[in-house]
């Protein structure tokens, strides 16, 4: 039995549809009820929904054997898990953005507003840039508009929110997509089950890339 943690929301539903299409379906999932955990003995799977940023925690601590999580979360929380496959969905990029047409002065400490302090710190450390991180939990775009920060480090999908607020992406830090992860111990003890799922994913999803 493989315990699978999926991120609540659109991405998770898409992942479930993909898993279901390669023989890991669990009809209970689609019923409208208040259950939290869904089991399908036949296909040997048990699914549950978790807050996207918590999926990695469930997998790292072995409550789930495998899970699907955005690369942004993996880079931010650096959980000790295997990252086995790039599902190539939920694609976006982690970018530095700021006021359109402007560029922050290079002779001052750069003020960076972000939900991803770890990613921002690692990125600017690699460039030896002196920064001050302002940790926010949402609506990051307001920070540079109100001059609270020089730039933001955030996920950019289509760039619409940026454009509508007279902001633009300055540089891309890293490309993001959904990743299939596994607990390091479960992977070993449930090697056959996990690698069967992984092989099926490669077979069916690789060519679509």
């Amino acid at each position: 039995m493989l315990n699978i943690a999926l991120p609540k929301g659109r991405l998770g539903e898409k992942v479930y549809a993909m898993f279901s299409s390669i023989g890991y379906g669990c009809p209970e999932m689609l019923e409208d009820n208040r259950k939290l955990i869904f089991t399908n003995e036949e296909n040997g799977v048990r699914y549950f929904w978790a807050k996207p940023s918590d999926v990695a925690v469930y997998v790292e601590r072995g409550a789930a054997d495998v899970g699907v999580v955005g690369k942004d979360i993996l880079l931010e929380s650096e959980p000790d898990v295997y990252e086995l496959y790039d599902l190539d969905i939920g694609k976006c990029r982690m970018a530095v953005a700021g006021i359109k047409g402007e560029r922050p002065a290079s002779d001052k400490t750069l003020r960076v507003a972000t939900k991803f302090p770890n990613i921002a710190r690692n990125y600017y450390n690699s460039k030896s840039r002196d920064i001050e991180i302002i940790k926010l939990h949402g609506s990051i775009e307001i920070a540079p508009i109100l001059k609270m920060s020089d730039v933001i480090v955030d996920i950019v999908e289509t760039g619409t929110t940026l454009r509508e607020n007279n902001l633009e992406p300055y540089e891309t830090i890293v490309d993001i997509s959904a990743r299939f992860i596994a607990n390091k111990a479960s992977y070993k003890f449930k090697y056959d089950e996990t690698s069967r799922l992984l092989e099926k994913m490669k077979e069916n999803f690789d060519k679509k890339k």
């Binding site: 790292e60 601590r61 072995g62 000790d80 607990n183 390091k184 111990a185 479960s186 070993k188 003890f189």
Partner: peptide, 8 residues
């Protein structure tokens, strides 16, 4: 690793 523990 021992079966049932999530880390080494």
């Amino acid at each position: 690793f021992v079966d049932g523990l999530p880390i080494n």
